[in-house]
Amino acid sequence: MDHLKINSWRRRRFLRIAGTATACGVLTSCARENSPWRFLTTAEGRTLDAICEQIIPTDQTPGAAWAGVVNFIDRQLMGPYRRQQTAYRSGLREIDQAAVSKFGKDFAALDTGQQTALLQALEGGAKRFFSTVIAHTMQGYYGDPRHGGNRDAVSWRMLGVPVIPIRGRNRYEFPKQGAR
């Protein structure tokens, strides 16, 4: 048992150091990358923003783009959504390619009607990817502002939900002095 323990300790420590070294590399490279996002490229961010805005459009209240849903998704792609990084990379590429082959322009450059038509016509892998984006957009738009979306609690205010409810303290007064 003991040797196992030490091995695992060494392994973990090695992994930690190796991780730090890799991250250092990432750090230097991130200075070169000019994207405003953590995971997405500038172009991917633009495409995703347009898709999210289709999912929750702006009408009398702001839609997904203003609410910062891309910021939310981008942040989660470095955390809980990490396993979906490749799906995003290829899914966004696929949708842009579909836009180019159908209308000769990137998805973000299409007009609203074209975008809607394109998303409704998606099939196979692209359709599955789109349903993932729908789920994530709902989380980013209706979830807590702390995760980078739902800017200024815009969706909660739209629904009429108090951003922070007004609740007085229910004090606990001890039954009699000194008692517990």
Binding site: D144, P145, R146, D152, P162, V163, I164, P165, I166
Partner: peptide
């Protein structure tokens, strides 16, 4: 604006409800 301990961020007073 209020610093909300749960969200760990400020909310502008215009976003907060009057009861």
């Amino acid at each position: 604006g209020l610093f909300d301990r749960r969200e760990q961020k400020h909310f502008s007073v215009e976003l907060l409800p009057l009861p």
